[in-house]
Amino acid sequence: MKHYREPSIEAAETGKPSRKGLVFLAGLTLLFSSCRLDMHDQPKYESYEASEFFADGQASRIPPEGTIPQGGLRQGELLYTGKMDGGDSELFPFPITQDTLVRGQDRYNIYCSPCHDKVGTGRGIIVRRGMKQPPSFHIARLREAPPGYFFDVMTNGFGAMFSYSSRVQPRDRWAIAAYIRALQLSQNASYGDVSEEDLEKLEEAATE
């Protein structure tokens, strides 16, 4: 007794599928071409996708404590904590260049200016909407605070301000600290601090 259909001799000889089969396939493809979505939604996890496998329903797992991601070994106390000899560092862990300041300005405007405002007086839009007002960067206490202090506040938060360590990477935090220094200088500058060339530019801008 045969439990299978013998392949048609015609197809076997020519090596081509039968015309009937082709028509049938074409019909099927047309009919169901927009219904199959299993390649659109494959059994793999995209970022933030929910999971039925894990009890908490999250595909993104929290690594065990003490896990060091590739390239994430944090060597160098100063760079990652802002501390030196047990206190806030007076020094930056790397040389500050014009590029660092530009980067710092960019990050400051994204992450800090909503509350601290763009010049650092602490009257940003979120403060005007009810957030506790932070001190101005231009008061004596903060003008004298070492860069490590600003790094520490960004890393661990302070008062009503949450930590920004997950959003701003350590080198960027230092760049912001450097930019805050620049802001402080800018708000306490006198005529004599500006080079003659820049003075000309300022005067030009003022007369325009």
Binding site: S47, Y48, P114, I126, R129, G130, M131, K132, A160, M161, F162, S166, R167
Partner: peptide
């Protein structure tokens, strides 16, 4: 959307980000 410049995913903020302001506002 903090990871948009460095990752394939732009990043959906964790609740921590919302609460950074909304522990004080609204």
């Amino acid at each position: 959307h903090t990871s948009v410049e460095v990752s394939s995913s732009a990043g959906i903020p964790p609740t921590h980000t919302c609460m950074g302001c909304h522990s004080q506002v609204w």
